[in-house]
Simulated assay, not measured.
Amino acid sequence: MQRRQFMSALAATGLIGAGVRPLHAQAKLEKTKIAIAVGGKNLFYYLPLTIAERLGYFKQEGLEVEISDFAGGSKALQALLGGSADVVSGAYEHTIALQAKNQYIRAFVLQGRAPQIVFAVSNKTMPNYKSLADLKGKKIGVTAPGSSTNIMANFVLAKAGIKPNEVAFVGVGASSGALAALRSGNIDAMVNLDPVITMLERDKEVRIVSDTRTLKETQAVFGGNMPAGCLYSTDSFIQKNPNTTQALANAMVHALRWLQTAGPSELIKTVPESYLLGDRALYLDAWSRVKEAISPDGLIPADGPATALRTLQAFDETVRGKQIDLSKTFTNEFAKKADAKYK
């Protein structure tokens, strides 16, 4: 009865006719069932996605999300291009690399403002390592060929004058498989993320060559801010489903806000037990090293796209010399609205 009286009062003032909806109303979603592909869901790189899923933030936005986990980001991208995924939680650089091939995808909410990727050399197979030149002809483990870890490896090697075809890249995934590959001696170096890297560091199994777990380290490696994990999709999906895209951005920004204030015990209780790799203390130690890399607001930094383009041009012949319109690789429109909602 009270609600009817309230609505009648609104009608009497003319507000409803003017297009003002009650505060709890939500724009109708064009699509409620969404398939998201990710490569290495257990990594901190993708932690905001897990938080949004585990805390029910997607459901709060009216979405029914199914997340498929692949061995690496390049595999997740293939799922999008093949039509089995609507959206990817993956590296921003893929939006540039695809535009160079006349395919357009766009990032619409940022998860990480630093890549968190670490290049490390095995102390087992390369105990006498002195410089990157020693890696010529060696096997380097990446999450998956063509993934963001592969991109980082190529960039670091290029700065030392080493071409991609002068090493052998091996896909090792982002969890126990990566650890096994290095410990068995099947690879000589690894480019991976936490918590894998912190575990290897603790056991003194690797030597760090290049580190992008903090903003300062990222800027030292790439020469500027480097956008990392994000949600991206095809231009056609975003154009056809603006309300659904906004709902996805809302859920992710909600998760980013939670991560800014969550305590260690809250984090441990929220993530799946398998993420901890059997060591809660180590997981929290790794989290303390990468927490700064999590975006606080979902916005892609102004200089970030140009940094990513320079990075790819340093070694990728398919990007070098191509006219890339960076404005078509991302939009902050949805993240800005989500920020306003969750301030």
Rank of each mutant, 00 (worst) to 15 (best):
M1G: 13
Q2G: 11
L10A: 14
A12T: 15
L15W: 14
I16C: 12
Q26N: 11
A27T: 11
I36Q: 10
A37C: 05
A37K: 05
V38S: 05
G39K: 08
G40H: 08
Y45S: 09
Y45N: 07
Y46H: 14
L47Q: 12
L49P: 01
R54Q: 15
G56N: 09
G56F: 09
E66M: 14
I67C: 05
G73E: 00
S74Q: 04
A76W: 03
A79R: 10
L80D: 01
L80P: 03
G82A: 11
S84Y: 09
S89C: 15
Y92M: 02
E93T: 15
H94Y: 12
I96F: 02
A97M: 13
L98T: 06
Q99L: 01
Q99F: 06
A100W: 05
K101R: 12
K101W: 02
N102V: 04
Q103C: 07
Y104G: 01
F108G: 00
F108K: 05
V109F: 02
L110M: 07
R113E: 09
A114M: 00
P115F: 11
Q116N: 15
F119Q: 11
S122N: 06
N123P: 02
N123G: 14
K124A: 08
T125A: 06
P127Y: 08
D134T: 00
G137V: 06
G137Q: 04
K138H: 04
K139R: 14
V142N: 02
P145W: 07
P145S: 09
G146S: 01
T149V: 04
T149F: 02
T149Q: 08
M152W: 07
A158V: 03
A158K: 03
A160M: 10
G161D: 00
P164T: 03
P164M: 05
P164R: 01
N165K: 12
N165W: 12
V167C: 03
A168P: 00
V172T: 14
A174P: 00
L179Q: 07
S184R: 11
N192L: 04
D194N: 15
P195S: 11
P195A: 09
V196H: 13
I197N: 11
I197M: 14
T198I: 10
T198N: 11
L200I: 07
R202F: 06
R207K: 13
I208L: 06
D211L: 06
T214M: 02
K216L: 06
Q219P: 00
V221R: 12
G224W: 04
N225M: 12
M226Q: 14
L231E: 02
Q239P: 03
K240M: 06
T244Q: 08
A255M: 03
Q260I: 04
T261M: 10
G263Y: 07
G263D: 08
G263C: 06
T270Q: 09
E273W: 12
E273G: 13
S274G: 02
L276C: 10
L276M: 13
L282Y: 10
R289Q: 14
R289L: 14
V290W: 02
V290S: 04
P296M: 01
L299Q: 07
P301H: 04
A302V: 14
A308R: 13
T311F: 10
Q313H: 09
Q313L: 03
F315W: 15
V319C: 02
S327P: 00
K328H: 11
T329H: 07
T331A: 02
K336P: 01
A340V: 09
